[in-house]
Design a protein around this nucleic acid. Sequence first.
DNA 1: GTGTTTGCAAACTTTTTGCAAACAC
DNA 2: GTGTTTGCAAAAAGTTTGCAAACAC
Lengths: 132, 132
Amino acid sequence: MAVQRRNTHQRQLVLDAVIARSDHPTAEEIYHDVRAHDEKISRGTVYRNLNLLEEAGAIRSVHVPGGNRFDRRIEDHAHVTCLICGSVQDAPLAYDDAVDARAAAETGYDVESHSTVFYGICPACQRKQQTT
Amino acid sequence: MAVQRRNTHQRQLVLDAVIARSDHPTAEEIYHDVRAHDEKISRGTVYRNLNLLEEAGAIRSVHVPGGNRFDRRIEDHAHVTCLICGSVQDAPLAYDDAVDARAAAETGYDVESHSTVFYGICPACQRKQQTT
DNA sequence: GTGTTTGCAAACTTTTTGCAAACAC
DNA sequence: GTGTTTGCAAAAAGTTTGCAAACAC
């Protein structure tokens, strides 16, 4: 059975902070944003709630070089990340359920989903490289 | 200009340790394996060389929940990871270059490659769940 | 000989955790 | 009232770094 969850002020603030951003923030960035609304909330509470909200399916996280990023979009979708500055954005890519079954059949894993990350250089970092 | 690289005993040991494993080891596991051959090598040296070898293209790393894993296979390919124990394995999935161009066109990023990770439950963890 | 690399240890970053008080239901 | 959640602070985990000695070329 799932653990019972209570609706606390702090949990709502963390969820709101993730929803307010479209740029896939880090835990530290969420902590910073939440502190702007509540000077007393602690880092531990932010981390605990990010993990609980992810478990509950209210938010998701993206694993990229440089750490974990949180995502308000909970449907399956791809991302692109910058190899220089680490920025993360949504990327268009049709989600193909069929490949999950194929991967399951060939690996023996009970596959639930998949995630694709594109690696490249973001527009801002491209401009900086040209200046070099 | 790329930094000049010297062929040290320690660097070779780290590379050999990655090549010797097919299970996508963590940095700590590589450190442990290398220590079996050289009691004096330090953690710092292992981390430095893993990063240098990855930069040089001799090995790759996979970013999954739970941390970074190293991979002796340097060609593009997919992975499957266990949501319970964190194990990582190669997964069969045709690598499609065309999607990189599409992602680049729609995001403005200069996309170099992509990586797909399947999430699921590995055979061993499936068996443990049945016992519950 | 020159410049890179190593071992060591300390520092840093990020995340988790124990506990008593505060809070949601 | 009962059991969850919070803030705090410490600890844990993972990785990086400064430096003098050692080493590769």
